[in-house]
Design a protein around this nucleic acid. Sequence first.
DNA 1: GCAAAAGTGTTTCTAATACACCCATGA
DNA 2: TCATGGGTGTATTAGAAACACTTTTGC
Lengths: 237, 237
Amino acid sequence: MPKPYCYEYPHPAVATDLCVFSLDKEMRLVALFIRRKQPPFEDQWALPGGFIKVGAENLDQCARRELMEETGTEAAHLEQFGAYSDPGRDPREHVISVGYLALIRHSPAVAGTDAAEAKWFPIETTKKGDLLVNGRRAQLAFDHRKILTDALQRLRRRIDEAPIVFVVMPEQFTLAQLQSAFETIKGEELDKRNFRKWVIDKDWLKETGEFQRGRQRPAVLFTVGKKISKLYAQGQK
Amino acid sequence: MPKPYCYEYPHPAVATDLCVFSLDKEMRLVALFIRRKQPPFEDQWALPGGFIKVGAENLDQCARRELMEETGTEAAHLEQFGAYSDPGRDPREHVISVGYLALIRHSPAVAGTDAAEAKWFPIETTKKGDLLVNGRRAQLAFDHRKILTDALQRLRRRIDEAPIVFVVMPEQFTLAQLQSAFETIKGEELDKRNFRKWVIDKDWLKETGEFQRGRQRPAVLFTVGKKISKLYAQGQK
DNA sequence: GCAAAAGTGTTTCTAATACACCCATGA
DNA sequence: TCATGGGTGTATTAGAAACACTTTTGC
């Protein structure tokens, strides 16, 4: 195998690892994993991600490119949260991975070239903070359980600070749906009245004037305010 | 120049850049810079830092090692805050730098091997957030102004969240001195009574029973509580 | 008329802020 | 005795949290 890229000093490989979260149809918090086609950790589930194109892109661009390759998703909340760099974390060579948190609208997973399969799995945390994937303690390749745990913690902080939840909401939604999204992401129940006060006080929402009709009392439909929807344009028609 | 380290795919160089803060004798907030001995940016001031020892250390260890080399300081608050990765940020090659925030006891700066000089400079920020070094708008090599600006922002957040201020305090100190340290780091004045309430409510301090005597009323001397001093052991005898 | 979800206000508590005077000492 | 910095308490406000009943609709 040729090794044409040579340096005066040793260089590590650098990759981004993506912690891609979404809410599925049943409003479960899901994360995207790929099943590895190659060693190491062949056939195990791992975070999507890939190596940076040296000299051609920065880490944000790398993460965005990988996200596109794995999900076809253009716009999303994408945020760097940490670098993982233990020399032994990848048995092949010293690989430094920069973790990215992504929150995207749910979409079919697409296996990239180096993955046998890409799939969304429901995730949750136990009371003591252990990460569960599909209800069982996460078994992931590399140090990806640690990375994902950090990402989820970051997501749960961010969800209150910035209007990122709207990337997983449909164009119109009721307050009950919005509350449910928050509850799922945060993994805790929220008080209805306090939630409504809190979210309406923020300058995020706009009433559409329309109603969602079901078998009960119709619910007011909201949409995202203009300023916010510009920031988090969702490729939603 | 030989290039003995070869890879199948291109690899970037990876370094840590250290934003080392301290308080000097006059209680000014200072940051440590080195004057570069080599191109690029020869003779310009830059952040200390250096390349990771591939396969032999992780980024935290790299940062800690560099800190030791530049300051002789063993223990300090040291915290990763972000990766800087634009392909053109270093003209030589694609270098990814991971920024570390360090807060250490003031100590003489020591020029490392690749620095002509190492020096502490007083830093502050304008109201609109511009970074001033020595009272003038910062002129630093690479993208180090951006990195340092991010670091300072992080420092100002952390200082309230965790008992890191004690790495710059002497073993015994008065509340007035402690308040002054907070004010300097945060770049704003604090209310004396509110500060005392706040800091005493935290479980950080212990009265020594001793007093500092000056030309005025003696001030109660405090020291750091046991739990805290373990976490932030300072190499102070 | 009843089941089901939508909607709504008030009280309580806590944390942050603003603010002004007396105290103990050295000179 | 006075200049100097050390030390203290209370009232106000804002935001978070707890909490229960009425409304509107489809069936």
